[in-house]
């Protein structure tokens, strides 16, 4: 497995506050990596250190197996926080500056402006753009160097549903080209939809890292059942069941020991001569696991 980014003991301390605490992270090539954590958990500080705008207190990192440096950053497309451009310059002039920094030919500019639908407004000053257009220019700027890695910090912050969908499609599209994406977010639903791997930060510490597809594996399954008679007493005698509880809407929530599934429960109920009128296996959400992780850490 090729590695795009690895960090060793990366730390940042602000006075007595440990914003990032001995972070060891490995991001495989081609993954869509979600960096999760509540506000203030150190996501943005981490990205800032990886892009050399925040000086680490300790630790090191390598992009593409190479020590940190400006040449590595030229191969990365990053969108952090709000779009940053010269207000008095046009979209094209602003991208020319980015092209000069990243040492990519000016010919790349038209393509990315087209890609984000700004070709028509390219000769207007940045300050005349709407928020959505500014965001799209950020994306164009990040795409300009045909990046091997794309870093997005809360990319859907402040966007309307259409904008969120656009960004999501864009992320998926880039991921399909085999590129690596690092996505910092507190929107778990977002991460579950687009990411292949994820890591959870809490108060600057890495408390979990794994694959999104493995979320909920080897763990208890929750099933909602409903029948014409009360079930809790009977269910609590079942060896598969951890516990059961009647929910306000009348259905009973049953938690099963692994590796039992909803069909095992249905079979067992049938053997007890009970026919379930409703049986619903609840997939474990990232949100639930995330909250559990934060609680247990």
């Amino acid at each position: 497995m090729e590695t795009v980014l690895s960090t060793q003991g990366l730390s940042k301390q602000y006075g007595s506050l440990k914003a990032v605490d001995k972070l060891d992270l490995v991001i495989p090539k081609g993954s869509v990596f979600g960096l999760l954590g509540p506000n203030g958990s150190g996501k943005t500080t981490t990205l800032g250190m990886l892009l050399d705008v925040i000086q680490p207190t300790a630790g090191s990192y390598q992009w593409f197996g190479l020590p940190a440096g400006k040449e590595q950053r030229k191969r990365i497309g990053a969108i952090l926080e709000t779009p940053v451009f010269y207000p008095y310059l046009t979209a094209r002039q602003n991208l020319k500056i980015v092209a000069l920094i990243k040492e990519v030919p000016q010919t790349a500019i038209h393509k990315v402006l087209d890609q984000v639908g700004l070709a028509e407004r390219q000769h207007d000053a940045f300050k005349t753009y709407s928020l959505g257009m500014k965001q799209r220019l950020s994306i164009a700027s990040a795409l300009l160097c045909n990046p091997e890695v794309m870093i997005l910090d809360e990319p859907t912050n402040g966007l309307d549903p259409q904008g969120i969908a656009e960004i999501r499609n864009l992320i998926m599209g880039i991921a399909q080209q085999g590129k690596t994406i690092i996505l910092a977010s507190h929107l778990l639903d977002e991460v579950q939809k687009v990411c292949s791997d994820f890591a959870v930060l809490k108060k600057g510490k890495l408390i979990y890292t794994g694959k999104v597809s493995e979320v909920g594996h080897q763990q208890e399954t929750t099933v909602l059942v409903q029948a014409s008679q009360p079930l809790t007493e009977l269910l609590n005698t079942c060896p598969m069941v951890v516990h059961s509880q009647v929910q306000p809407h009348g259905k009973t929530e049953v938690v099963l020991h692994p590796p039992y599934t909803a069909s095992d429960l249905n079979k067992w109920l049938f053997e007890q001569n009970i026919i379930a009128s409703h049986l619903e296996a609840k997939t474990k959400t990232l949100e639930k696991q995330f909250l559990e992780l934060l609680e247990n850490a």
Partner: peptide, 10 residues
């Protein structure tokens, strides 16, 4: 823009 320039690779 100074921050952005550094992020971009300056």
């Amino acid at each position: 823009t100074i921050r952005q320039h550094v992020i971009d690779g300056l």
